[in-house]
């Protein structure tokens, strides 16, 4: 079997685990962790796809100017942008989690829903 794409496979496994947890787990902290895993999986995939083995980052050091010797810097730029975006999303999600925990003293989303319904 051909194992050229093991980085991509690892990335998609990570994405799958994170995605399943994000949807299925009821614990808000675990949902946060799952979200971080989902996004890391995607960035790993993007970084793996953006690298071609044997080529260098596009910085001219020894006067080599042929484009074939370098990799495209855009995927790495996208990964950086994406990381910033997911940090912001995580922060908002964690802030909501903290405030829900202070109010209901539980992290279980079903439990919180039950308590909030009871308030009416």
């Amino acid at each position: 079997m051909d194992w050229h794409n093991y980085e991509e496979i690892a990335a998609m496994v990570l994405f799958g685990i994170g995605f399943a947890l994000l949807v299925l787990d009821r614990n808000l902290i675990k949902k946060n962790i799952a979200f971080a895993m989902t996004d890391s999986g995607m960035y790993l995939y993007l970084a793996a796809k953006g690298y071609i083995s044997g080529r260098a980052a596009p910085i001219i050091t020894d006067g080599v100017t042929e484009a074939e010797r370098y990799i495209n810097p855009v995927p790495a730029g996208l990964v950086l942008t994406g990381i910033v975006v997911s940090v912001a999303s995580s922060a908002v999600m964690l802030a909501i989690t903290v405030r829900l925990y202070r109010k209901y003293h539980t992290l279980n989303l079903d439990e919180i829903t039950r308590l909030a319904r009871g308030e009416e």
Partner: peptide, 25 residues
């Protein structure tokens, strides 16, 4: 920022993070 608003926010965030992840992929 009452309990219901926060709960709605949490539910909204989870669904929307799922959606964003699929879109980004």
């Amino acid at each position: 920022s009452d309990g219901k608003g926060l709960l709605a926010g949490a539910r909204y965030m989870v669904m929307n993070l799922v959606g964003s992840a699929l879109f980004l992929l």
